[in-house]
Design a protein around this nucleic acid. Structure first.
Lengths: 194, 194
DNA sequence: GTGCACATGTAATGTGTTACATGATTAT
DNA sequence: ATAATCATGTAACACATTACATGTGCAC
């Protein structure tokens, strides 16, 4: 990982639409992305870091009379963002960086490929299933003498991962069906026209 | 919060049983507590910090011939740990610090009060229900123009919190029933003996 | 003219991560 | 002997948080 999660989040937000530091702060405070910092002491230095790396460029914004420094992505920033978005989803990410996986899901549309959402959901489903199996095995072998609270916490975790796996796989299949539907519809139209 | 999550985790592990830095590292690598660091550069400094604060004391351990510095909690450390374990569970913790809530659940037995587990689970249930409601309301009002991936991520989150809320409330009720059962059983025995 | 929202920053601090570093004991 | 495991540390770096600090434009 070449940048911090916050930095990738900012990159994605800026790619989604041109943003100033203040805009970004507001988005982070007002949406469930809030667990990323949201304080000026966190965002402004992060912006300068990714600017120094050449991933964003400031553009003076004179739409209003207020002082305002907006940013947009450079080609380098754009390709770095795409690299991050299209990273494979593995067990490690599901287990320890689920928030980032969900962030990548949220910004999947920035890849510009309508099919990638279905693929990404399927990857989440597979990796989560694998991790749930690993967790189940851990619970089976290692928790005989655990206190009640610890067993409960582990079972809660297992249940969560299992339900997440089902959900992701299911949503992926839904998209597959829709695509199939759209495709056969298009074929019908073609046949009709010919 | 007067100490870092890692520090509280270490405190709890040491209270559970006397540990050296190496023991702690092994526990962190081998259990799902793994997302707490696990590297020596993280654990040894943390140990020195809580030692400086007077929460743990090192005890030379000559059980084996290896060099080994084990720790145990001081009375101050013990009461700080209990303070942390018995903090109220609120929406903010559910939303942004769920891992810590689960850690506190895992070590609830260190409070020494068998009833506290049920109470803690009920508190998780209530706070999670509240947060799920807030998230649902956010989704209802704010996501009309969100990209598909973002909506999916939010719905996944909502589903997770809803299922967690149900689970916690249900487990709490199970414990309540068991307690009820145990109590009436004890009453029966008393009656029989008299 | 005063208070609020807009808007951007700096400094101090703590902490986690990575990489580097060392050495002892045990098992093969 | 030598590799693996036990065992403990340091240094450099990046990052987030908190608190502090400053100034502008708009609405009332």
């Amino acid at each position: 990982m070449r940048a911090s999660p916050l930095e990738y989040g900012l990159l994605a937000l800026i790619e989604h639409r041109r943003c100033s530091g203040y805009d970004l702060r507001k988005i982070l405070t007002e949406t469930p992305m809030r667990h990323y910092s949201d304080s000026p002491g966190s965002i402004y230095p992060a912006l300068r870091r990714i600017e120094r790396r050449g991933w964003i460029k400031s553009v003076a914004d004179r739409a209003s009379r207020r002082r305002r420094i907006a940013y947009r992505l450079t080609p380098n920033g754009s390709s770095e963002l795409k690299r991050w978005l299209s990273q494979p989803v593995d067990e490690e990410q599901i287990a320890y960086r689920l928030d980032q996986v969900m962030l990548r899901l949220s910004f999947n549309h920035l890849l510009g490929d309508p099919a990638s959402l279905r693929v990404f959901l399927a990857a989440i489903g597979r990796a989560t299933e694998d991790y749930a199996a690993r967790l189940k095995e851990f619970i089976r072998t290692a928790t005989a003498d655990y206190p009640a609270g610890a067993s409960l916490a582990l079972h809660a975790g297992l249940q969560n991962y299992q339900s997440l796996a089902r959900w992701a796989t299911n949503e992926s299949k839904k998209l597959q069906r829709d695509r199939g539907g759209a495709r056969s519809m298009a074929a019908k139209l073609r046949r009709r026209r010919s």
